[in-house]
């Protein structure tokens, strides 16, 4: 309706004032025949311009709408990504045992870390790279945070900074049960890393920070075996 008023103001009203009196009586008819009346070249050209103008406005509106929708979709996608990335699920020692048992990977490395633990933070990028490099060969990395409740936001932030977009865990429950569920010989120092074979048997463990090469050296035989 607004477009028609605009058109009317620019073209029809001006045409009316420019036309001969006999035509002024046919304003309604002119409106009705706006798109088909080509007998008058002036009106035809003006009508063509009007069509182009309206079409352009419609196109512009559609374009804006599509753009806005696209923007909304991007936001939604990013939100979904944020929701799905670097999840930190609380697990008890019993659940950790089940997690390892059900891993099904040829080699599973459990790494216990915490945001306050500097060696853990230093080791972290190597582990992320390990997962990226060996995931397709049957390797699975399970991160378990030993952070307290109040440090969960910081832990999630750190995971995102490290590019971790898969599920990770946080230990809850008693410390000794947790330690013993991973290895009774572990003294609880962080970081702690525990390597399991396809059968879920622990074949190696490390107390303290290790390197990409050290981990890989022990993981590869399990993937190739």
């Amino acid at each position: 309706m607004g477009l028609f008023k605009l058109y009317k103001k620019i073209f029809i009203d001006r045409n009316i004032s420019n036309r001969s009196p006999d035509l002024t009586q046919d304003v309604d008819r002119s409106r009705r025949n706006l798109f088909v009346n080509v007998s008058n070249p002036v009106i035809a050209i003006q009508s063509l311009f009007a069509v182009i103008l309206i079409f352009s406005i419609v196109l512009l509106s559609c374009s804006t709408a599509i753009s806005a929708e696209s923007e909304n979709n991007t936001t939604k996608f990013e939100t979904m990504n944020n929701e799905n990335s670097a999840m930190l699920i609380d697990v008890t020692p019993e659940e950790i045992t089940q997690l390892i048992k059900n891993s099904k990977a040829k080699a599973t490395l459990v790494n216990v870390w915490a945001t306050w633990c500097m060696p853990c933070r230093e080791e972290f990028p190597d582990l992320v790279k390990l997962q990226a490099d060996l995931r397709d060969k049957g390797f699975r990395l399970i991160f378990i945070s030993a952070d307290f409740d109040r440090a969960v936001p910081e832990a999630k932030k750190f995971l995102e900074q490290q590019g971790v977009d898969y599920t990770t865990y946080r230990k809850v429950g008693k410390d000794m049960d947790f330690i013993n569920s991973l290895n009774p010989d572990w003294n609880g120092s962080l970081p702690g890393s525990f390597l399991y074979n396809e059968a879920g048997e622990q074949v190696y463990f490390w107390q303290g920070k290790e390197t990409y090469e050290e981990f890989k050296k022990h993981i590869l035989p399990l993937l190739e075996g």
Partner: peptide
């Protein structure tokens, strides 16, 4: 003798 998680001594 017990064990506990803790910060490593620097």
């Amino acid at each position: 003798e017990t064990k506990a998680l803790g910060c490593g001594i620097k």
